[in-house]
Design a protein around this nucleic acid. Structure first.
Length: 106
DNA sequence: AGACTGACGGTCT
DNA sequence: GAGACCGCCAGTC
């Protein structure tokens, strides 16, 4: 199986209204320390047809990762998150303490 | 079989 | 807090 499918499987578990960081997804996918790989995998997701909630994955600083290579998908990402009720501050950051996904907490 | 390409994150200045 | 540095690896041609 493709390694990326494992990453997508984790991403699909992120609930609506929550976000996860690249590093967090990497850990859950048994790829601890390989956050970049998660970024590479998500870049390959087809934004219009995929069932993966790719927009709920952001960087460890609590920001959407912007890049001209994304052809506007980054702005779409922010828009989708706002539609889920997530608020950005004046610096374009999300409060991770409020929105970070916490799988199986005790 | 290389070479190239990318949404990162922790640590140290 | 902001940069710089560095390790990371699968997919495509």
């Amino acid at each position: 199986m493709h390694t990326y499918e494992q990453i997508y499987a984790i991403a699909r578990q992120i609930p609506l209204g929550k976000v996860a960081t690249y590093g967090q997804v990497a850990e859950l996918a048994n790829l601890a320390g390989k956050a970049r790989l998660v970024g590479y995998a998500l870049f390959r997701v087809d934004v219009s047809t995929s069932d993966v909630p790719w927009h709920r994955v952001i960087n460890a600083k609590g920001e959407v990762s912007y890049s001209p290579l994304r052809r506007g998908a980054d702005y779409l990402q922010r828009s989708l998150l706002e539609q889920e009720g997530i608020k950005f501050n004046e610096k374009g950051k999300i409060n991770l303490r409020e929105y970070l996904w916490q799988p199986q907490p005790y």
